[in-house]
Every structure is written in C-alpha cells, then in structure tokens.
Write a protein that binds this DNA or RNA. Structure first.
Lengths: 264, 264
DNA sequence: CAGTGGTCTAGACCACTGG
DNA sequence: CAGTGGTCTAGACCACTGC
C-alpha cells in the first residue's frame, strides 16, 4: 500500500478499484482526487469566498496524505484562480470582491493602456425584468425554453462617456430576489454581489466576438452616430463544474478603447 | 550550504551574492535559476525545435541539483508552452511545425465550432516587399524609423471564402532572404517556416481588437460589400525574452466566423 | 528490458506574517 | 515566537515508450 492513503475520508489511487467506477479504468493520481475533494468543499460552501481554507498540514492530516500531495492539488486550484496563496498567512478562497480588480473578465481597456486613468465606471441600469427564456437564451444557460430568467440591461460609462451597452440573462432560480434596486445600490463588481447574496461564484467564461453595426436604439443609448461599428461580445460565465450561470451580450465602443488579449 | 548546488555550471540561490547582481537583492529560488539556464540553451539553439532536451536526470547532474528541482523548472517551461513533455519518451522543444494545430495564435473559428470542417486554408499572397519602417511599425518592433522591414499582405480563405486580410511586418535583419516565393511555396504554418529557415520562434503574442468599417480596397480584396463591419486585430508576436519580431494587422470577417476567447 | 516522465513520501530548512 | 506557505532533497515506486 504505497500511496493508498487511508480509510474514512480518503480517496483511492488504484486503477479500476476506486470510486471512479466507469468504463475506463481511468487511473487518477492521488493529488487529482484530493483536488476533487477540495473542490467539493469549495462548491458546498464549507469554505466561503475570501476565507482561509485549512493549512496544508491540516488538509494532509484530514485526507491522510503527505503535505506534498496536498500542495500539488492546491497548486492546480491556484493556477485556475479558484484559490489564492499568501505566504505566511494561508490559502484563501478566491473572490471577486477584493483587490480592486474591478472587472476580472472585462478585457476592454482604454487606448492609453491605463485602466486607472478614468476612475470607477458609471453604471446605469436601463432595464431589469423577469421573463421567460427564449430558445437561444435557454440553450446558453442549459434551461428549457420558457423557464424563468432575469434580464438586465445597463450602460457602462468611463470618464463620463457611454462605452458599453450590455444585456445579461440570469437563471431565475439561483437569482431569486435580485432586483434593479439591489443592483444599482451595490458598490463593487456585480460578480461580488452574486457571490455574497446568491452564493454564485463565477469561475470561468467564454466569449464570442464579432464586429457589428448597431441599430438606432443602440446608437441612442451609447450616444453614437449611426454607422459606428461596435464589438459584439457574447459571454457565457460558469460556476464550478462549468455550469453556465450567466449569458451576457455586450456592445463595446472601440474608438477610445480596445479589447486586449494575450496569447500563449 | 543547504541548497547551493555546486561549482562549474551551477547557479547560486543566495540572496545578494549570486549572479543577480543588481539593486534588489532579489532572492531567486534555485528552480527559477535552472529555468533561466534551460531558457538560455533554448534561445541559443543548443536544443532545436522539435528535438528532445536532455532527460531530467541528465539536467540534474549537469546543474548539480536534484531531479525535483529540474522538474519544477521544466514544469514552468511546459506551462508556458516552450517545451512539451511526453511520458516515456522525453521532453521536447515546442515547435509550430507539428500537431497540425495549423494556426496556434489564430482565434477565429467557424460559427459551427468545427475547425476541421472547412479543410486547410487557402493562402494568397497579394504583396511582399522590402521597405523602410514607418514610425508606428518601428515602435511596435522596437526598431528605428526608416529601418528595413519586410511587409507581406495576404488573404486567407476558408472553404473558398476570403475571410482574413492581413498585413504583416517583419524586421529586415532576422528575416533576410525571405521572399514571396518562399512564403507561397511553403506548406504549413508561417511560424514553422520562420523557425526552420530563420531560427525565429514565436512564443507569445498580444492582440488589440477593434471593430472597423473597411475601405473600398479592402472590400475588394475580401469580396464583401461596403459597410460590412470587420474585426481589426493587431498582433505583436514575440520570441524568447519578449522581443517583438512581428507586427500583424488583420481584418477578420465575422459573419460566418467569430473570435473565440476563454477567460479564467 | 532499460530509460523516460509522473507520482508519492518524509524530512529539513527558508521566507513571510502576525501576535 | 509559532504558524503558514515555499523550496530543496533523496529515494521509492508507477506508467508509458520503444527496443
């Protein structure tokens, strides 16, 4: 029993005999199983966003494995931004509510490159209503057509200039009780509100980008002239386990800002 | 001397006494120094793209450190896509010439999501000439205005439909001898040609994206009607040590394709 | 079968944080 | 000072590759 750790709360690393009972024997390293267990605790809310998780030694004892194995599991969670390590202090559950990285998923930056030069964004909620999901919205959120969804439309302005017009759709269930008032009162990132008020933590997202010409109503809201091309950014944001929890369709002005992306 | 490895080719981990002689004492972990040494060998061409680098044991012996330390260094290089590990075979210098990931940096995909559905792209070189760098091109490539650069203009077509029109600029020095013939003859990714023929390996890139309306000449080349909005994608690609070696300005059609981006 | 990368362990020591 | 994460080591064994 070289690395089959223990008995009560511990995983098995053996091929084909462990809890991974499936068609593929699917050998899974111990640290991956530990990662899975930690992930479960994160999802279940055992450790809340912003709070510290147990120390590596504690987790090692809990799962009956060595510190090094726990470390490797946490390394991966940290690489996925699910957790933040701080030397001398501990490991903390990542959150959207801190570090003044106001918009973690927003890749639009001013052309001068300095995000801080324009101060905090002004956020105006144009509309906020409950309705039934259309076919495409339902598909994106893995709901059924007609299920209850919350739709929000808002404009973001930087340095007083309307720059982003976005619609977003949230599944009605998890976001029961969300109102325009709550949204407009709240200081800080929307995703932080989702975290603290609804226990929904956005972890990953995917964006599909196109160039479009806006219609008159959209031009009106962004105070731009007809014919100005805009970036159309459709985002699907997911919680743990890639469960989609938000669909967002944004129109970005790109005459004073641009979408910045790094490729590796 | 707990982890000060050795004498002849080995680094020092001590703060302020090592080769990192600078203003900041800058403690640097051993594995970072090893990573730096491996990086040097990659840059210098000691190990060519596609070839295997020495085994972890060999490197450990060479640098007089433990295998675990070499491993951690290689882990980071692998995470940065500079190197590829293959269990049972070895660790290989990454290259653009394999794996049929035809365009490693191209994020434009067909709306159906299946990159393979449209077969290999058709590439038509419109123009290829040597000229003197304008101010903005020179700045992007860290050259001086008026320095020799090579400019290439081409159209990429997918399933017979012209989809991308791009101009690219390369520094004249490193790419001496590159001609339109070499480019059009070559099968495979352009970056693979750069690697094998000019020893320039693109490692990282940054893109700035905007929505634009093309001018008549551009519409002509892409065979689209006036007023069709396009994605403007400016890319700066770098070799090792973030030295910029290519400026690319592309116009992407987004009526049948879209730019896909993942956020973490 | 030998050689490679991949996992796991146990223990030592270092650097940082806060009381 | 004790507690945390961070580094380094040495050794064992596993999984995969190719001869």
């Amino acid at each position: 029993m070289s690395h089959s750790p223990a008995d009560h709360e511990a995983p098995s690393a053996e091929s084909g005999s462990g809890p991974t009972a499936g068609l593929t024997p699917a050998f899974s390293p111990l640290y991956q199983q530990i990662k899975g267990l930690i992930l479960q605790s994160l999802q279940s809310g055992e450790w809340k966003p912003g709070a510290a998780i147990p120390s590596e030694m504690d987790l090692a004892a809990r799962y009956r494995v060595s510190q090094g194995t726990v470390r490797k599991a946490i390394d991966e969670l940290a690489a996925e931004n699910l957790v933040v390590r701080r030397q001398g202090k501990g490991t903390f559950v990542a959150t959207h509510a801190e570090h003044q990285v106001q918009y973690r998923f927003l890749k639009l930056i001013p052309d001068n490159g300095d995000v801080n030069s324009e101060g905090p964004a002004q956020r105006d909620i144009i509309d906020c209503r409950r309705l039934r999901a259309s076919a495409d919205v339902a598909r994106a959120l893995t709901l059924r057509t007609g299920d209850a969804v919350l739709q929000v439309r808002r404009v973001l302005s930087f340095a007083g200039v309307p720059t982003i017009l976005e619609d977003l759709w949230l599944p009605g269930g998890p976001f029961k009780g969300l109102t325009a008032e709550r949204l407009s009162e709240y200081r800080g990132p929307m995703y932080a509100l989702f975290e603290t008020e609804f226990g929904v933590r956005m972890v990953r997202a995917e964006e599909h980008i196109r160039a479009v010409v806006p219609d008159p109503a959209q031009c009106e809201l962004l105070k731009i002239s007809m014919g100005t091309p805009l970036l159309s950014v459709e985002r699907i944001a997911c919680t743990y386990n890639d469960v989609p929890m938000e669909l967002r369709r944004g129109l970005y002005r790109t005459d004073t800002h641009h979408y910045r992306n790094e490729l590796n």
